[in-house]
Design a protein around this nucleic acid. Structure first.
Lengths: 406, 406
DNA sequence: AGCATATAATTCGCATCTCGAACAAATTCC
DNA sequence: GGAATTTGTTCGAGATGCGAATTATATGCT
């Protein structure tokens, strides 16, 4: 049971009831479509008469559409309802150091269009660039009514001021991205940390999380980020900077991290860590790097290491297995502490899931005494663009989420 | 915004509105009493007419009482309303290895009576003993209508089956305490982990947590427990076994823990850890323990160490300072990961808060780069019985918490 | 073809709730 | 004693869900 926040609560009025039921029905249609009014009455427990009134409202507001007739062994055929995916589009923006993607999706979070461009290292230049491209992008699709713009950022976002506090891999500090984008697009703009966005994508768009109210998304890339859904809601913490489990030390005597501490989880289990490990192993193996330089730069990319491991390169395999071991150690911390129903791992490393999963499982079983392990660990398809879709969930939430009550 | 759980939601009916507003008003009266109807209208934003109807209902149901008249510079004097603390009592039970306490409190969580007795090591014997004592306790106060019984347990409680999964310090596994107690008392019985209970006590009864929806309670005793409030609600996790941050390893090469892993937080920062450290330091100091035995048993109690440190004993001070250091390390993990608005520390060690606070602060500042530290760390008065009051909050929640909607 | 049966969807009177204006009650100041 | 002010209640209007009755539509048996 939740405590009422007496410093900020919402009283109920007569239309609160409709608001609640409307959102339930709309979300039911979204997830179970196509579905008939009679079905909705049975699933929801509302009277058929009430369903008729609510669906009538949703129809006139164009949120839903009537479709074909269903087939039944006997009796009048039901008229199917489904989401009017063309009612509105949502723009998602995924900012990463290597490049930025803008995408347009319908209400089912299916992509209609997308484009990518390099991310300028300078925040001001980037903001001007992105604003310009967004304006052009919207103009290009001006036949579609756009609901808002969601942006995912690899860094900490203050949940109140919506400013980017710090994005280490972009080198940005205290950047206001929201205000200029809102001015440029004249649309609702929401900014969120990438790991949080991934967590949102998981509960909003993935069937695997049906009925789950507690999950953690772990993004493994240059660093490690964690997005926590607690009781069906993003855990933001004071100033919205929760989720830095990547900077918890798992070994006090470990190597120094950029954050100033020693032995942070991401120093052992991130892509960057794997690259360093691979290079160090090569050096200590007596191989001059000059002789053995099959990579474009002097260091391999993480993709290179993945490829090598898939081709059976022993050193690459050892590197990946070490990474899996440390991923398991960090995950055991999350499970001990929060025991989520599900942990979703996002990142290039999921490409070799078959190799790393048994290692992660072994570490977890050793550390959590097996019997207590109720958390499902699953990889997220990177091709499904969790960061992008999660940023879209930020906008969709406003229509399909639970209303703020009491 | 919360996602609607489509596998378990609650539709709204016409009386949902009243239910919501009623709970807001009742909780406002609880926390702001004495308060007039006009005040409630101003605070809540509801119309005065609506307040009159709701308070009339609360009056007839005896939840509240009319009190004295207020004083105003001009105009009709307001009639104060306050909680009818005599309407119902709540029984709280605090089970610890050293002893069990039963207490009766009114709706303000003020104690009316209490009694303590030794905790039998055998679960079955204990259950019979507690059942017997509860029956007698209820009979003794039969003039008071009792709302329910809340029990706090130093161990993991399955949030669905309500069974005690494992209580290491009691040596109990898979014990059903709820069913026999409900049978014995014929009352609603709720069971909860001690750290979770402390967290509940903090948000329900402590003014310091006004407006706070994210906090962590850290109980430091034989082991270390963590109770997490996320978005105003207890974080239970799958099977309700969240909160075992005490068993996260902070040093892979540290000493072995009972849980089977190495270097768990509680191996460094619990009372037990301090006792072991003190004894080891004594041994390595060349003092034969036989010569230096000022304690009742062969080991000092944690209380002994606290006393010694207060008297200036160098070894005790060093032990406490080491403990403070490790407390800081664990807290930095919690803050990095969840960034709660507040962390409450519960345990005997808070008696020397003045000594340990600067050390904890120093560790946190070093590890969290100071600027990001928005979490308040506060000690909880052990004399306020947070475990006991928290177990009472379990029952109170049902009347004063937010209703389950959507 | 006609009727019974079954299912879907709508209609309508009723109860509940909040709102907001009007009104009654109580108190102070001039 | 009257004006001003604040508290608290009353009452009609509007919104909502409920549930029974009604209408619409389909299948299958005789």
């Amino acid at each position: 049971m939740r405590k009422i926040d007496l410093t900020s609560f919402n009283i109920a009025t007569s239309d609160t009831v409709r608001n609640i039921n409307r959102r339930i029905i709309l979300d039911l249609i979204r997830t179970r479509q196509p579905v008939s009014r009679a079905d909705l009455a049975r699933i929801s427990g509302l009277q058929r008469s009430t369903i008729s009134l609510i669906t009538e409202q949703l129809l006139t507001e164009q949120w839903i559409m009537q479709g074909a007739l269903g087939h039944l062994p006997r009796g009048r055929k039901p008229r199917f309802l489904h989401l009017n995916v063309e009612r509105a589009g949502i723009i998602g923006v995924n900012v990463r150091p290597s490049g930025t993607t803008i995408a347009l999706a319908n209400l089912n979070a299916q992509f209609l269009a997308h484009e990518s461009f390099p991310t300028d290292a300078n925040a001001d230049v980037f903001i001007r660039d992105l604003s310009e491209r967004l304006r052009a992008f919207i103009k290009l699709h001006r036949q579609i009514y756009i609901e808002g713009v969601g942006v995912s950022i690899p860094g900490r976002v203050d949940s109140i001021s919506k400013r980017i506090v710090f994005a280490p891999n972009l080198g940005w500090r205290d950047v206001d991205l929201q205000t200029p984008l809102e001015r440029a697009t004249n649309l609702l703009v929401e900014i969120e940390n990438a790991a949080n966005a991934c967590a949102l994508a998981e509960i909003w768009f993935d069937k695997r999380s049906d009925g789950i109210q507690d999950l953690i998304a772990v993004t493994v890339s240059e660093g490690i980020g964690t997005g926590i859904i607690a009781n069906g809601q993003l855990l933001r913490g004071a100033n919205g900077i929760a989720g830095e489990f990547g900077h918890v030390s798992i070994d006090e005597s470990g190597p120094l991290c950029n954050c100033g501490n020693r032995g942070c989880w991401e120093v052992f289990a991130s892509n960057t860590a794997a690259i360093n490990e691979y290079v160090n192993a090569a050096a200590s193996n007596g191989n001059s790097r000059r002789q053995n330089n099959q990579f474009e730069s002097d260091k391999p990319s993480f993709d290179d290491i993945l490829h090598l491991s898939e081709q059976g390169d022993a050193r690459a395999i050892a590197t990946i297995e070490r990474m899996a071991n440390y991923l398991g150690i960090g995950l055991s911390m999350l499970i001990s502490g929060m025991s989520p129903s599900m942990i979703v791992v996002i990142g290039e490393v999921t490409r070799v899931w078959k190799r790393i999963e048994p290692i992660i499982k072994k570490v977890l079983n050793a550390r959590l005494q097996g019997s207590l392990m109720v958390t499902r660990i699953i990889p997220a398809e990177d091709s499904l663009q969790p960061r992008l879709r999660g940023s879209m969930a930020l906008i969709l939430q406003n229509h399909f989420g639970a209303p703020l009550i009491a």
